[in-house]
């Protein structure tokens, strides 16, 4: 099955297309990367560890960012427990 989300990165931005809803979203590249990781099943501590390793951010920043993004992605229908 093809991925439910399609990503198009340009510089520091990314356009994401949701094949289920048909909606398109413009995200900062970092936020889109996090979304990509979430949809690949990388969550919680693993996700935070990846962010700290690959980007220059602290543990607290990473925790806050991932939890707020997860919430907003859920409300946008970009992630959902029933299809991830």
């Amino acid at each position: 099955m093809p991925s439910l989300l399609a990503f198009q990165f340009w510089d520091d931005e990314c356009v994401v297309y949701n094949r289920l809803s048909g909606d398109t979203h413009l995200l900062p590249a970092l936020h889109a990367e996090i979304l990509q990781l979430i949809t690949e099943g990388i969550r919680g501590d693993n996700l935070i560890a990846r962010l700290i390793a690959e980007h220059a951010i602290s543990h607290d920043e990473a925790t806050e960012l991932t939890s707020s993004l997860y919430k907003s992605y859920k409300s946008l229908g970009l992630v959902d427990s029933s299809w991830n």
Binding site: R19, L20, S21, G22, G77, D80, S82
Partner: peptide, 16 residues
């Protein structure tokens, strides 16, 4: 195809 996609999305939303 687009119609089916939109319908199924509505069903998911109603289900939620």
């Amino acid at each position: 195809k687009a119609n089916a996609r939109a319908t199924n999305w509505e069903v998911r939303d109603l289900y939620r």
